[in-house]
Design a binder for these strands. Structure first.
Length: 862
RNA sequence: GCGGGCGUGGUGGAAUUGGUAGACACACGAGACUUAAAAUCUCGAGGCCUUUGGCCGUGCGGGUUCGAGUCCCGCCGCCCGCACCA
């Protein structure tokens, strides 16, 4: 039996595709367009098997849509700026650029080896000056349009590394690398005003614009935006030496204002800071709050703590003076950083009130409760009910009281109803080298001056690799002095370039548009981009459900307002794929071992070197630390690119995790060989067959055609619906049906050619090299990747007879095959006449017979 | 705590959305080929029983229905996201 020589096939057909320029995206004008995009990788140095699964899905869709008559855009590039390159520079002494570009070369080769149908002519890296120069142009246009703002913001400062840290680089209040306690510093930073667009970003989640997105991703975005409606109002303050005579608070429960028992401010609220200047104990309290505040789970357990300020605030509706506390549970970043507290109807406020012995006044009476004797114990009541103890609101339902309270406060001029978002404006300044320089110049006379468009791009200056061995941003040091020191475009005086670079999320917020159109003098050509966009199918990991996808949606809106795009939603359909997992192995000493070191026999595992038994750990996401990583390259060497592509899609639904197993990869490899072997038995079959189906086909050949066309119909639908695992199951089934093919006469020749061509074409999106090999053997025209998708003949999908399950009392008792157009009465009679049925109906009264044509017959006896 | 999802053989998973539960694959068993093994091919397989037949069976308990893996109610368990958001 001939073996599929995958390595030779891969080389041969990859070369053929390249020579034919088969995957160049071009708009013919008369075919529908299809843009399929997978989230581009960070050039860490190696393609991970998870990438292979992600891109295999995209490739199936791309090849399928091409065969179905679409003009397909399927690009690939690299998200190439970012910290790992600087870390590598620190460790290896290689410049971040050198490291990044050589990694990309390696990864591009690895991707090509797997045979993805990418249009490499559109390849881009975000660290190419061609790319980030255009990003600077976008920045300047956004600035001009007022989409960008400059504000003071706090950053995590590592005093040893002299650098700013991202939140996730701060571990227990210390820098992840230096271990030094992190300081909070206030810097002037650039912000994209995403909150301005919060309403539309939210609206699109529900108005049908994102129907093609998974519900859970939309839900995550909804929560992240966190819209709430409420009241922003001021309480007049009473006390000595106040910086401000009002305290502004935000609440979503103005209906409970009569239940107020104190006011609270966050530890870094200006009022708290003001009093801390003259009160060392308060200063100490604030510092304690800030030290404990940030760590994750500590928050949940943190006890409510407060510090009383020597001030009171006047209640708006009665004469009470409310005490004011600095409280550790109030967030400075939400609302105004200050609240009024209603302990009866808010758990946090209640905990606090019990601790500091403050009054608890119930104002919402739960429906069906008697006011007499109603009291709040340890649990705040947050449900609906009727207002009590609430002056003008008494007797109203809580939901009526809410607008009434807002109206009253507005009348009084003490505040107004507002909408509030949890979403913050997007700070994009990074005090880093390896990113897109922010194109502005700081002039002592003229302040901030945007770099004039004709002076773009602001190219990242070359600095020697040793610059990364020292703490701090090289752009701030002598290495970059000539670059940094410049002249003011406005007044011509000495000026200084901004040394901050952009958050790398900016880079990935518009790459999908640049793939569609890459002119040299502007970010995108509006006309060209609009022909490809939106992305019809976007595929990537769930880890990007919030930030990347939200930023890209935001960017599309900005770009639309600048005239670059004609859509505000860049991704019409989104699919989030599951990870590739693998079993873990731990030896007697507790060290993780790699799959290559282990031999699995049944349910036990043994070390290959030494043979001692080894513990099989849980199946987990592949990671270096657990040593359960398999290399796509090695797997491709062993089983071939086709088999690994096939396997990562075959075993689980694409949204779910799939476990990599050697046995599974071998199964895919076996499938490839069976297909190859089958086709090898009929060389030239496609050429020697009649062009159309001979008349009066014998019954067995009709049955064979039915099987083939049934498979075509279901596989087509499965791919369309992203059910790759089912499509693959149907391919196995089809292969199983294709036994005993023959070319003995014209009828057989036709049926065999039809069956093998269909099989080949449907295998092609999954195993493209094998498909080309088979296509060539069969004598198909041109390349298989350009062949049309097979079409299912409706007439063969329908049969004249139907097989019905026959039940008695809902239990299966037999099967009945009968003409499809048989009237219900005939079906009923035939079913009742069946011996297997009569055994159960004998001596009983048939009360009812339910006939569902095409499905079942159910006989009810009584 | 809030929100979302899931629970089917030894395993991954199918089931036209209320109509033959377990497709397809992996692992397993038997057989063929072979001096032998591997590879390959063929066949078998949810459990139980008194085995030409029958009963039970989709986390557990109830319900609706001629009929429930699917719908409803109540539990149990697991996963994911958000989390002091006023």
């Amino acid at each position: 039996m001939a073996k599929y020589a995958f390595r030779a096939a891969e080389e041969k057909w990859q070369k053929a595709w390249e020579e034919a320029d088969a995957f160049r995206a071009e708009l013919s004008g008369d075919r529908p367009k299809y843009y399929v995009l997978e989230m581009f990788p960070y050039p860490s140095g190696k393609i991970h098997i998870g990438h292979v699964r992600n891109y295999a899905m995209g490739d199936v869709i791309a090849r399928f849509k091409r065969a179905r008559g679409h003009d397909v855009l399927h690009p690939m590039g690299f998200d190439a700026f970012g910290m790992p390159a600087e870390n590598a520079a620190m460790q290896t002494g290689k410049h971040p650029g050198e490291w990044t570009y050589s990694n990309m070369d390696v990864m591009r080769d690895q991707l090509k080896r797997i045979g993805f149908s990418f249009d490499w002519s559109r390849d881009l890296a975000t660290c190419d000056v061609d790319y980030y120069g255009q990003q600077q142009r976008l920045f300047l246009e956004f600035l001009e349009k007022g989409f960008i703002d400059r504000q003071e913001a706090q950053v995590n400062w590592d005093p040893v590394d002299m650098t700013v840290l991202a939140n996730e680089q701060v571990i227990d209040g210390k820098g992840w690398r230096s271990g030094a306690p992190v300081e909070r510093r206030t810097l002037n930073q650039w912000f994209f005003k995403i909150v301005e667009r919060a309403d539309d970003l939210l609206a699109a989640l529900d108005d049908g614009r994102l129907d093609g997105w998974p519900a859970h991703v939309k839900e995550m975005q909804r929560n992240w935006i966190g819209k709430s409606k409420g009241l922003q109002m001021s309480f007049p303050l009473n006390g000595d030496g106040l910086p401000n005579s009002w305290l502004e608070i935000y609440t979503t429960r103005p209906d409970t204002l009569y239940g107020a028992s104190f006011l609270g401010v966050s530890p870094d609220h200006p009022l708290a800071k003001h009093f801390a200047k003259s009160d060392p104990d308060l200063e100490k309290f604030i510092q304690e709050c800030q030290a404990a505040g940030t760590s994750e789970e500590a928050i949940e357990k943190a006890e409510k703590k407060g510090y009383r300020l020597p001030v009171t605030g006047k209640h708006p509706f009665d004469d009470r003076e409310l005490p004011v506390f600095v409280a550790n549970f109030i967030l400075s970043t939400y609302g105004t950083g200050a609240i009024f507290a209603c302990p009866a109807h808010d758990q946090r406020d209640l905990d606090f009130a019990r601790k500091y012995d403050l009054s608890v006044i119930p104002v919402v009476l739960p429906t069906g409760t008697d006011e007499e004797g109603y009291d709040v114990a340890d649990e705040a009541y947050v449900g609906p009910g009727t207002m009590i103890n609430s002056g003008f609101m008494d007797g109203m339902k809580a939901e009526e009281a809410l607008p009434a309270a807002i109206a009253r406060i507005e009348e009084m001029g003490w505040g107004k109803g507002t909408t509030n978002y949890r979403l913050r404006n997007w700070g994009i300044s990074r005090q880093r080298y390896w990113g897109c320089p922010i194109p502005v110049i700081h002039c002592e006379k003229c302040d901030i001056v945007p770099v004039p468009a004709d002076q773009l791009p602001v190219e990242l200056p070359k600095v020697p690799a040793e610059a990364f061995k020292e703490p701090g941003n090289p752009l701030d040091k002598d290495y970059a002095k000539d670059w940094r020191e410049t002249t003011c475009p406005k007044c011509g005086g000495a000026a200084r370039r901004e040394t901050d670079t952009m958050d790398t999320f900016v880079d990935s917020s518009w790459y999908f548009a640049r793939f569609a159109s890459q002119p040299g003098d502007k970010p995108v050509d509006a006309k060209e981009a609009s022909r490809w966009l939106p992305v019809d199918q976007y595929i990537g990991g769930i880890e990007h459900a919030i930030l990347h996808l939200l930023y890209a949606r935001y960017f599309a809106r900005n770009m639309k307002d600048c005239g670059y795009l004609d859509t505000d939603e860049p991704f019409a359909r989104l699919f989030t794929q599951g990870m590739v997992t693998h079993a873990t192995y731990k030896d007697a000493e507790g060290n993780w071992r790699t799959p290559e070191e282990v031999e699995v026999k049944g349910s036990k595992a043994f070390l290959i070197d030494g043979g001692s038994e080894i513990a099989i750990g849980p199946i987990e996401k592949m990671s270096k630390s657990k040593k359960n990583v398999v290399s796509p390259e090695e797997m491709a060497d062993t089983y071939g690119a086709d088999a690994i592509r096939f396997f990562v899609l075959s075993d689980s639904p694409p949204e779910r995790d799939v476990e990599w197993t050697t046995a599974g990869a071998e199964g895919a490899w076996r499938f490839a060989n069976r297909v190859y072997d089958l086709v090898a038995g009929f060389p030239g079959a496609a050429k020697g067959a009649p062009a159309s189906c001979p008349a009066d086909l014998p019954g067995d050949l009709v049955e064979r055609r039915r099987a083939v066309h049934g498979a075509i119909a279901s596989i087509t639908e499965d791919i369309e619906e992203f059910r790759f695992n089912k499509a693959i199951a149907r391919l196995y089934e089809l292969l199983g049906h294709l036994k005993g093919l023959s070319v003995s006469d014209d009828a057989n020749k036709f049926v065999t050619a039809e069956a093998l061509s269909a099989l080949t074409c449907m295998v092609a999106p999954f195993m493209p090299h094998l498909a080309e090999e088979c296509w060539e053997t069969l004598g198909g025209d041109g390349l298989c990747c350009n062949a049309d998708w097979p079409k299912a003949e409706e007439s063969l999908l329908a049969t004249d007879t139907q097989t019905l399950m026959v039940q008695v009392q809902g239990k299966k008792r037999g099967e009945l095959t009968i003409a499809k157009d048989a009237p219900n009465a005939d079906i009923e009679a035939a079913a009742l006449a069946m011996p297997d049925v009569q055994r159960f109906t004998e001596g009983k009264n048939v009360r009812k017979v339910i006939v569902v044509p095409g499905r079942i017959v159910n006989i009810v006896v009584g």
